[in-house]
Design a protein around this nucleic acid. Sequence first.
DNA 1: ATTGGTGCAAATCCTTTGCAATAGC
DNA 2: GCTATTGCAAAGGATTTGCACCAAT
Lengths: 147, 147
Amino acid sequence: MTQAEYPTTDDLVTALRARGQRVTSQRLAVLRELRRRGGHVTAHAVYESVRAELPGTSSPTIYAVLELLSELGLARKLDLGLGSALYDARVEPHGHTVCRRCGAVADLDGGFDPDGAVAAARAGGFAAERVELVVAGVCASCAARRQ
Amino acid sequence: MTQAEYPTTDDLVTALRARGQRVTSQRLAVLRELRRRGGHVTAHAVYESVRAELPGTSSPTIYAVLELLSELGLARKLDLGLGSALYDARVEPHGHTVCRRCGAVADLDGGFDPDGAVAAARAGGFAAERVELVVAGVCASCAARRQ
DNA sequence: ATTGGTGCAAATCCTTTGCAATAGC
DNA sequence: GCTATTGCAAAGGATTTGCACCAAT
């Protein structure tokens, strides 16, 4: 497993300043929370945690901030068909495994070449910005539990 | 672009018989519709079309049939974060490009090795069943239109 | 002082559920 | 005839929207 690298609040402040946007406590708290959890968090989970720190924070704000962080490249939204989207503070290109039984999501390092995918897309005139690899199946513990 | 290969209604009849499930007009119509459209269709679009052929067909049935087809390996569900899932009758492993501006989805052939991803997942004890590669960015026509 | 962000409430939209009626075997 | 499948109506849940207030610049 490679060492995960997460964006800092300084990164966020810099990115916001660069776009003339405001630094708010909610924005800082959401990024901190994403980092603290270490990946694959629902908007609702972020909402609950941030609310503990900043009571009164609303769920539309959480969604807005998460979208902003994704635009800024400080978070990544994962649509894995689990009912709700997941957000990941680890922004380096990497894949994910999703267990069909328990819904567990895990990082998948290696096994594919993001640059190859980007090149293939460009060959079709497509300007690639983000690559996501998803492997669906059954995780080790589910396979052990229910044969 | 490789020649796409789509499951036939015979494939569906065979698969249903093998599992002791019933062959219904709705199931046949949904598969035919997926094939006719040629990929990347919403449940709602399938619903509208099947309804034209089989009036009275309900939307819960469409969802149930699409899920069944996915289980049987005769369709593939794509969760691309577009608000609604897409269904694809082309079941061979292949990637997709998704335009952030217009939402257009296109097949992406080549540029990655599904077997590598499966092997990487297996190395972590994960039994891979399905691999999906998504490249997000801006499509050629959006790039041309709005610079 | 400005105005971008936030909170609140409500709406929207996709998808699933419960149950009676129907149609495939 | 038996029972899986369907249709209907309604619920559920994630996410978005509109608007008034607040707080970062």
